[in-house]
C-alpha cells in the first residue's frame, strides 16, 4: 500500500548516533567528508576507515543496510577503479600487454580512490540512517541561520523542505488515484512511442496540478489560521542541546583530523 512509503532511509534505533544532536551529526559528517579528501597517504586513509567503521558499529544499523547504500554507487566505483588502474602510471609495472600497462601507482590510486568513495558514502548514509528527514531539516535550518545576515531566508527554505517531505506521500497517493481513474476510462499509459506516452500523461498531470494548487491554497489558509507569519518570533518545541556525547564526537573528529595531517606528513603520498 502507498501508505507504507518511507522517506529518506531512516533506520529507527536508540544508539549513540541516533541520540546525538543532529546539528553535530550534520557538521561532523560534513567535516569528516572533507577530512577524507585531506587523506593523502594509506595510513591516513586507514585512520579514516577505522573512524568510519567505528561509527558504523556504533550506529547499530545492520551491515546489510550499510552495504545496500553502497550498491547505487557500485558502477561509479568500478569505473573509477578501472580508470585509475589504466591511467595513473608510475613505479613498478605489474602487467603489460599491447598498450595496456598496470603499474604500482595505478593500482594504489585505484584502491585509494575506491576506499575514499566507500567511506564517503558510508558516512553520509550513516547520517541519514540515524536521523529523520525532519531532524535533518531542522538541523540545517539552525546551522545555516547565521546566513540570515546575508538576507538568505533560511527559515523559509527549511519550511519548504518540511512541507515537501510532508506532502510527497500525499501526492504519490493522489497520482495513484488519478491514474486509476483515467485507466478506468480507457487511458492507455503502457503502449505507444515516447511522444504518445508523453501525451497520455496529460490526463494525469493536469488533475494533479489542479489539486496541488488547491492543496497549496488550503494549506496556506490553515497556516495563517495557526498564526504563521514566517520565522520571526517563532520558538521551537524541540530544543537542540549539545550533550557530552556531542562534545566527545567533536573531540574525536579533531583527533582524527590531527592524526590524518600527521600521517600525511610522515608517510608517502599516494595521490
Amino acid at each position: 500500500m502507498v501508505r507504507d512509503i518511507t522517506f529518506g532511509q531512516y533506520y529507527p534505533g536508540k544508539s549513540v548516533l541516533h541520540r546525538m544532536d543532529p546539528r553535530m551529526k550534520l557538521a561532523a559528517t560534513f567535516g569528516m567528508i572533507i577530512v577524507i579528501f585531506i587523506c593523502k597517504s594509506f595510513p591516513a586513509l586507514g585512520l579514516m576507515t577505522l573512524f568510519t567503521l567505528v561509527a558504523a558499529l556504533l550506529s547499530t544499523v545492520p551491515l546489510k543496510m550499510i552495504l545496500k547504500s553502497i550498491k547505487p554507487v557500485l558502477i561509479i566505483l568500478i569505473f573509477t577503479a578501472v580508470l585509475n588502474v589504466f591511467y595513473s602510471k608510475g613505479g613498478q609495472t605489474y602487467f603489460s600487454w599491447w598498450k595496456i600497462e598496470v603499474t604500482e601507482k595505478g593500482v594504489n590510486t585505484a584502491v585509494f580512490t575506491v576506499i575514499r568513495i566507500i567511506a564517503l558514502v558510508v558516512l553520509s548514509s550513516l547520517l541519514t540512517y540515524t536521523t529523520t528527514p525532519t531532524m535533518l531539516t531542522d538541523a540545517l535550518e539552525r546551522l545555516l541561520s547565521p546566513l540570515k545576515v546575508f538576507h538568505i531566508k533560511v527559515h523559509t527554505l527549511a519550511m519548504m523542505m518540511t512541507l515537501a517531505l510532508r506532502f510527497i506521500p500525499t501526492l504519490i497517493e493522489e497520482i495513484d488515484r488519478i491514474m486509476n481513474a483515467q485507466k478506468a476510462r480507457g487511458a492507455d499509459l503502457e503502449t505507444g512511442g515516447i511522444l504518445q506516452r508523453a501525451k497520455a500523461l496529460i490526463p494525469i498531470f493536469i488533475p494533479l496540478m489542479v489539486s496541488s494548487f488547491r492543496r497549496a491554497y488550503e494549506l496556506a489558509l490553515a497556516m495563517t489560521c495557526r498564526c504563521y507569519t514566517g520565522g520571526e518570533g517563532r520558538t521551537r518545541m524541540k530544543q537542540m542541546k549539545l550533550a557530552g556525547r556531542d562534545i566527545a564526537c567533536l573531540v574525536i573528529c579533531l583527533i582524527v583530523l590531527a592524526g590524518v595531517i600527521t600521517l600525511n606528513i610522515f608517510f608517502k603520498k599516494v595521490i
Partner: peptide
Amino acid sequence: NPDNQIVATIVEDDVAFGPENLGVEP
C-alpha cells in the same frame, strides 16, 4: 480536508506548530 492542514511530518511537531508561531516557551 484533513490532509491539507497538517504541516509537519510528525504528529507532535504539527501540534506544536501553532504555539511555536506564537512564540511560546519550549
